[in-house]
Amino acid sequence: MKITSKGQVTIPQAVREQAGLLPHSEVEFDVRSNGEVVIRRMSTPVSPIRAAFQKVRGSATAQEFKGMGTDEFMRFLRG
């Protein structure tokens, strides 16, 4: 495998699949003292709206939403 003049390299499909690398995945590089380079998938930051959904996922009766109307719920989700 060669590095292009722009410093790019193609990660083989089998390696991408095994590492869980999808298009637009963020990665970080760790250069070790012996010259090895480790490419690591970075965790995706969670947006506030996704965090709100994760907080109540699987529960339609979450305490925070008891008695909350649709408009109030949408205001909560939108921050």
Rank of each mutant, 00 (worst) to 15 (best):
E28Y: 10
P12N: 05
L77G: 04
T44Y: 12
A62E: 02
E17P: 06
V15P: 01
D71V: 07
E26A: 11
D30K: 13
T44Q: 14
M42V: 13
G35I: 07
M68R: 07
T44C: 08
G20P: 09
V46R: 09
R50L: 15
S33K: 13
S33Q: 11
T4P: 00
N34M: 07
F53L: 13
P23K: 09
E36W: 08
L21T: 09
E72N: 14
L22D: 11
E36M: 12
A60C: 04
T44D: 14
I11W: 08
F29K: 11
V56W: 04
P12R: 08
F53K: 02
V31F: 13
V27L: 14
V56M: 01
Q13G: 04
T4E: 05
F73C: 11
P48V: 07
G79D: 15
M1G: 12
K55E: 08
L22A: 14
L21H: 10
Q54W: 03
Q54N: 08
F73Q: 00
S25E: 10
K55D: 09
G35H: 09
F65T: 03
M74H: 07
F53Q: 00
S25M: 06
A14H: 12
T61P: 02
F29L: 14
A51R: 09
F76H: 14
A51M: 08
G69Q: 10
I39G: 04
M68I: 15
A19H: 07
V46E: 12
G79V: 13
G58L: 03
P45N: 05
V31A: 06
G20F: 00
A62H: 15
A14P: 12
F53W: 09
A19C: 14
S59E: 05
R16G: 07
S33D: 13
